[in-house]
Design a protein around this nucleic acid. Structure first.
Lengths: 251, 251
DNA sequence: CGGATCTTTGACCACTCTCAAGTGAAGTGG
DNA sequence: CCACTTCACTTGAGAGTGGTCAAAGATCCG
């Protein structure tokens, strides 16, 4: 979107609020369940904002009054043990919805992994919408089921994969989210490249490892030509199927 | 059922199908969202059955046409790596709902961990009910959110706890489900006892360990008096708070 | 350029796994 | 009722993967 003078045009907008027009959340996210009229009403209590990386969105134990849609960037969800050990239990990408409907409070910490663009609205506004748009709950339900599938996939990785296999799985996961198309060369080999949204300690917290092992296994895979790393953060995977094979010992 | 008026308080029970009257799923489970009339209709396509332990309910990749409510017993959900490594990604107890609504097919295997009593009905019957009873989807949504919370708690355990801590967490989890009250002695010490629904290899598959380490850590805790074990399967936890402390290194 | 932060590397250690044998309980058939 | 099999669990010895601690390189950013 061009940006600039959105607010002025808003007055004359055909029906869909300007802010929502190019928004992924309206197409693939939860807002797709809303009618024009509902979008207009919701957008009155909506604020778009940029969040800089490492900013906590919600902390464990704190009451949540705002929900958000991710417009761009990556959010990490993590849990803490009383002695400080940390585990990242989920990553979310645009146009995911952040927040737990109907909940007391969860012991989950939500934090911007990268700089983030989000669209926030009060919990109450969403809950009101749910009452009049049952399809909205359906979409939220589906997102919950999708997250459940993802969490269970990750349980398999954490419980049963070696450090190397975990790292390979992680890189595939990120590639699938950030560069889902990839590119195909003349031999039919699929490659992918992207900027890593997480630093090594985060990757370690996601994989249930230490940063040292992440680093060691990564250089190992770099030496084998499975991945190319530039400036720590820029990853190229020359052959993503080869990397997928490294995801479990039998292939 | 006896002709008398044992449960007089339930004034509306006149129309409730006999099978549903004493069913936990009607109170705490998803069926609670249904009206008398809907219960009657659903119960026409419903079958109650006993399932003996180790029986697969659904296998990975297979199309699911039946959903069920658990009336009694424990169900394990597991995932497999291509080379055969296995991870149990969830346990379900009465009156949980089994099945994934709206899904293609999941790569999840569902299996009776203990002998089981379930109430099954065709997927289509449930989906029809969802259309007319929005509260039903709400209940399913809530169960999905609860399972998501549980899966994420378990991610923390798998990623960050030691074998000993995992085992302690596991025992607390089972105790909370099977003997939630426990008993309290004169000193205010809470104890619990139950029959383990899983054998050692299952516990290992749940904790991301080998059966040998499960056994070793368990004898260790037995020697310390944290747990008492009879005939491999019968567990008594003399002081459940002490066990909870063993759940992470900092108290 | 200088300092902070992040990442890599090395040496050593510990925990869990692997492989193997041994014990115990439950069920089968003579 | 008792050998005999089977299955589940336990125990031991040794190996390997990942963790810990420490230091040195990179990278980022003012």
């Amino acid at each position: 979107m061009a940006g600039g003078d959105d607010k002025r045009k808003d007055i004359h907008s055909a029906g869909i609020p300007v802010l929502c027009r190019a928004c992924e959340a309206r197409h693939k996210g939860v807002c797709g369940a809303l009618t024009e009229d509902q979008l207009v009403r919701l957008s009155r209590s909506t604020t778009r904002k940029a969040v800089s990386k490492e900013t906590p969105l919600t902390s464990a134990g704190e009451d949540v009054t705002q929900f958000s849609n991710i417009l761009g960037g990556v959010v990490k969800l993590s849990k803490l043990l009383p002695d400080g050990r940390q585990q990242i239990v989920g990553l979310q990408f645009a146009p995911d919805f952040i927040g737990r409907p109907f909940s007391e409070q969860s012991d989950l910490t939500t934090e911007a992994a990268t700089t983030l663009r989000i669209c926030s609205f009060p919990k109450s506004a969403l809950e009101k919408m749910i009452e009049e748009a049952p399809d909205l709950e359906h979409r939220l339900h589906n997102q919950a089921l999708r997250e459940l599938d993802e969490a269970r996939d990750w349980l398999l990785s954490l419980g049963r994969r070696s450090a190397r296999e975990k790292l390979a799985s992680f890189l595939c996961l990120i590639a699938d989210h950030i560069d889902p198309e990839g590119s195909e060369d003349t031999n039919g080999i699929h490659s992918a490249q992207f900027e890593l949204p997480l630093k090594r300690t985060d990757i370690a917290d996601f994989l249930g490892l230490t940063p040292e092992t992440v680093s060691r296994r990564l250089t190992e895979m770099r030496k084998e030509g499975l991945v190319e790393v530039t400036q720590n953060r820029y990853i190229r995977i020359p052959d993503i199927d080869a990397l997928r094979d490294a995801t479990s010992s039998d292939g």
